[in-house]
Amino acid sequence: MTALVFVDGGDEELSAQALTFARGLGEELHAVVVGAPAAPERLGEFGVSVVHLASGLESYAPAAWAQAVVELISRVVPDVVVGPGTERGNEVLAHVAAKTDQPMAANCVSVSPGGTATVTRVRWGGSLLEEARLHGSPLLVTVAPHAVAAETIAGGADSRPAAIAEFAPTVAEADLVVRVSERIGAAASGVSLSDADVVVSGGRGVGSAEGFAVIEELAELLSAAVGCSRAVTSAGWRPHTDQVGQTGTKISPEIYIACGISGATQHMAGCKGAKKLLAINPDGEASIYAHADYAVIGDLHEVVPAISAAIRKARGA
């Protein structure tokens, strides 16, 4: 078994997970990196024997990057091509699949190669799993984020460095039509939702845009990011950048405080990474309580200000 891993230079962690996942499938591990990575030989720590460095394609061009992978497939002849379940990992592998007319399974949590390969993959943003047969060659898969923990091989840093093989893929003009022409920096404002250690969210139960004042006050006291449910963004109370969930932001705070949120599967898909969940809802039967560590049964407009006051008191302010 030979596995070829597409490494997404924009996401070291998920790429390391993809390498760890692929190592579990094949005896021989190759990696392909497009652009100019830092210290590619260090991928040897993950068991990679050869890193194929595609030159001449520095700015992101999905179809062209996929062409580099297609070229390598004919050279390395892997049994399986693995990508990380990042935006770019899924996009590049989908282009590889389209170019080679092979099936592709996105966001897999397990892959069993063999006669007829089977995969288990994520649906509904993680709320459901699917077992499927994958009738392709090579197998094209991406790895669901956090399906495995990234692990170096035994010996880790002392391992043999990977061999570096540079190549300049032949890319058609048409594959370069879609490429990044400019990067606009985001105006940094407050704590980013995806990286926040504490998130305080409001749902439909908040009742109005003005109602978020109590949520913002508590968030401020805890240096937390403010989040919300889709009911809130659809009503225009908060911008979509605040939305937690399957089609919003995925969060992984130490504690998630969800106020007036019922716990729809699509909302919960965005906060599975939260270590603790405190829900505040007057409905003791709300689905969110099936996922919560702590509950306060009650009206958020009474409970949340009381929590803010109690925090101030505890801090002696």
């Binding site: 805890l222 504690i255 509950a295 306060v296 009650g298 409970v303 006051a309 109690a310």
Partner: peptide, 18 residues
């Protein structure tokens, strides 16, 4: 799930968790 309480009276228990 651990019910910390009902209504605003639960606030001190929430602070305990925090």
């Amino acid at each position: 799930v651990e019910v910390l309480g009902r209504g605003p009276e639960a606030a001190p228990a929430v602070v305990g968790v925090l």
